[in-house]
Simulated scan of single mutants.
Amino acid sequence: MAHTNDHPGEQAAPDPIRLIGIRETALSVDEVFRAVGDDAAGGVALFVGTVRNHDGGADVDALGYSCHPSAEAEMRRIAEKVVAGHPVRALAAVHRVGDLRVGDLAVVVAVACPHRAEAFDACRELIDDLKHEVPIWKHQSFSDGTEEWVGAC
């Protein structure tokens, strides 16, 4: 009798990184979800980061993201690290740059794995590492006329 992890679907896919991108146009949850479709995946974890109307107790009027030219390569490096540490069948991540409004999608990531716990773990690592390591900066304008730059998004 074969062990569960002996099934090919329990292993990482040969090329699980399906979509990595920095976009100046609106992001699509459907595009990211479709990109991670995989018949061997029993769980897909998807995270959507949106622009909120406040930060640190101040009302946010506008927000803009800008990035270093290496940002997309850094996203891929992080994706490769997540794939190496988890049985990822498929992974996708896109981040928006430019001027955004409250409610706009800023980042969408998804990970498909054989089981839900693995998908949640891999997705959390992916978004947390993207947030801390990718050179994307956020410029916020507040309703009181002040503004601030925030380090890596």
Rank of each mutant, 00 (worst) to 15 (best):
V109D: 09
H139R: 13
V88A: 03
A93H: 06
H95V: 03
G9I: 00
D6C: 02
A2L: 12
H68F: 11
G9E: 03
D59K: 10
S141N: 10
V82N: 11
G145W: 09
A84F: 11
L130I: 15
E148V: 15
V36S: 03
R76D: 04
V94M: 09
P14I: 04
S70A: 14
A41C: 05
Y65G: 00
W137N: 10
E133F: 06
S70Y: 13
P114E: 06
V82I: 09
E147L: 02
P87C: 01
C153L: 14
A35Q: 07
V48K: 02
I22N: 04
G56R: 08
L91C: 04
E24K: 13
D30W: 00
D129T: 14
L27N: 05
L27K: 11
L46Q: 03
V108Q: 09
L105F: 14
G21M: 08
G37S: 15
D55N: 15
H86L: 08
N5F: 14
G85L: 01
H139K: 07
D99L: 07
V88Y: 10
S141L: 12
L19R: 10
K131T: 03
M75N: 00
L100E: 01
A73D: 14
H3Q: 02
G9A: 13
A40E: 13
E72S: 09
P14T: 08
S28H: 04
E80P: 05
E118M: 10
P8A: 13
V134L: 01
D128C: 04
G64I: 00
V107R: 06
S28E: 10
L100N: 04
L126P: 12
A73F: 01
E133V: 00
V102N: 01
L91W: 04
G37L: 07
A152W: 11
V51G: 02
D15H: 12
F142V: 02
R52I: 05
R23E: 14
W137K: 06
M1K: 03
F142C: 07
R34K: 15
I22Q: 05
G37I: 01
R89I: 08
E148A: 15
G85I: 01
A106L: 09
K81R: 15
L27R: 12
D30H: 08
A93I: 14
D59W: 03
G43E: 08
P135E: 09
I20M: 06
C123A: 15
I22R: 09
P69C: 03
P87H: 05
A110I: 09
V150N: 09
D6R: 04
H139N: 07
G37R: 15
P87N: 01
E148I: 13
A122D: 07
D15L: 05
S143Y: 07
L100Q: 00
I17C: 04
R76Y: 10
C123K: 08
V60F: 05
L126Y: 12
G85D: 12
V44E: 05
A152Q: 13
V134N: 02
